[in-house]
């Protein structure tokens, strides 16, 4: 049997799903992996969501955001994690901080790129009929940009779910545990199984979010009969607008 097949067989063996004296079971590892993912994604959304919408709506601080995002992307994940663990001790906080730092740039980019891609005339019209800035955001910009906003979330979630495995380098439970333990014990089947589990989880999450992304697409646009070209999907550059009062 090749390594890949052996890895699958390892995963399907019920005894590997429960935690024993020998090590973590898949069940517990999966739960903690998902826990770290969920908490990190949530915090990322809470921080980067409003920030990205603000930047996208006002066009302010865009360059600062791009600069900060690039800097965050350049940070060595493992190095940052080690530093935080030395600083804060072992626990869930250091990996969550690292994951949030990792998740913010794609989410932020999705949010402001999503809003910027909208037809300026539509926004202008919404303002002209008497919507407040917040109403424009909530009733026009967010619904129309929803697919791109979700796209940012999807990218962030994918980054995070795949990187959680790294926490296991420092003994924290996750699907990465099997990779790290497998390596230490020279158990390459276990290691392969761990890799398969991480990849499968990432694909599954991405697939679910892809479906959600389709569902949130605004009705009325992207039907081929669209004369306004207001969706972000057709990638039209926004036209200049003649207004200056907010």
């Amino acid at each position: 049997m090749n390594l890949f097949g052996a890895g699958f067989a390892w995963i399907l063996a019920p005894r590997h799903w429960v935690t024993t004296a020998e090590g973590s079971g898949i069940g517990d590892a999966l739960v903690h992996h998902l826990f770290l993912t969920a908490v990190s994604v949530l915090i990322t959304v809470v921080i980067a969501g409003p920030l990205g919408l603000y930047i996208g709506h006002t066009g302010r601080f865009r360059r600062v955001a791009i600069g900060a995002s690039n800097a965050a992307r350049a940070l060595p994940t493992l190095g940052l994690l080690s530093a935080l663990i030395l600083l804060l001790g072992i626990g869930d906080v250091p990996p969550v901080v690292v994951l949030v730092v990792l998740g913010i740039p794609p989410l932020l980019a999705g949010a402001y790129a999503g809003l910027e891609s909208l037809d300026r005339q539509t926004i202008d019209a919404a303002r002209a009929v008497g919507m407040t800035e917040f109403q424009i955001l909530r009733k026009v910009e967010i619904p129309l940009a929803a697919p791109l906003l979700l796209g940012g979330l999807r990218a962030a979630a994918l980054q995070i779910v795949a990187t959680v495995a790294l926490a296991s380098v420092f003994g924290l439970q996750s699907l990465g545990t099997f990779i790290i333990d497998g390596l230490a014990q020279a158990d390459y089947v276990k290691m392969t199984a761990g890799a398969i589990l991480v990849a499968a989880l990432a694909l599954l999450l991405d697939g679910v979010l892809a479906v959600v992304q389709r569902l949130v697409g605004p009705r009325g646009v992207s039907r081929g009969t669209d004369r306004h070209r207001t969706t972000a999907r057709d990638g039209k550059k926004p036209v200049a607008l003649t207004q200056d009062a907010h």
Partner: peptide
């Protein structure tokens, strides 16, 4: 809100 405004490209909300 108290003044009607009609523009060239209708400016309707597509969604």
């Amino acid at each position: 809100r108290s003044i009607g405004y009609v523009m060239q490209n209708s400016g309707l909300l597509p969604h």
